[in-house]
């Protein structure tokens, strides 16, 4: 087996294992940590896909900021004790497990991925550097500038919304 494939399987094991542990765990903190493992292995996947900038941003934003925020809220509300959340609707795991098995198989069956088995083109290795991403994102000839500005407005709305929500009523 090629080394790249071995690496893929190791990372995929970590990634899926983290996701499974997150879904099955009843303890929110355990759950969040499993998701961090999943996110970190996804960042490693991005590096193997020549997207170094996205990989770094994935670690900084998801693992470094979003998941720390999750942990902060879990600890702030002190939801550590598992008995806080009562188990109800026990028939759902069965149904959703079926869904989880069926869903990828359906995708395979329709042959969505059929045309994508070939090796990736070799010219892609320079795609993910900071300079390449920046030149594409801010290029005046490409259509990404307006969405970028719109994103900044979205973030501003999120900041204002979070402050309004979290403020205690005077």
């Amino acid at each position: 087996m090629a080394p790249a494939l071995v690496l893929f399987y190791i990372l995929a094991f970590l990634c899926v294992g983290g996701a499974v542990a997150m879904v099955t765990s009843n303890n929110p903190v355990r759950s969040a940590l499993s998701l961090v493992i999943s996110f970190l292995s996804l960042a490693a996947f991005y590096i193997t896909l020549d997207a170094q900038f996205i990989a770094a941003v994935q670690v900084v934003v998801y693992a470094g900021a979003i998941m720390v925020l999750f942990l902060f809220v879990i600890m702030l509300l002190n939801l550590g004790a598992p008995e806080v959340v009562k188990k109800t609707r026990s028939f759902l795991p069965l149904a959703t497990t079926l869904l989880a098995i069926i869903f990828p198989m359906v995708l395979f069956g329709f042959g969505v991925f059929a045309g994508l088995d070939g090796p990736t083109p070799s010219g892609a290795s320079k795609l993910g550097t900071v300079g390449a991403v920046g030149r594409t994102l801010y290029s005046p000839t490409l259509p990404w500038l307006l969405p970028f500005e719109a994103t900044s407005v979205l973030l501003l709305v999120a900041v204002v919304g979070a402050i309004v929500l979290a403020r205690r009523k005077a």
Partner: peptide, 14 residues
């Protein structure tokens, strides 16, 4: 190289 379909399958599982 790892075929792209592997990544897509992984993504579907996640």
């Amino acid at each position: 190289m790892v075929p792209t379909s592997y990544y897509l399958t992984l993504s579907a599982i996640l």
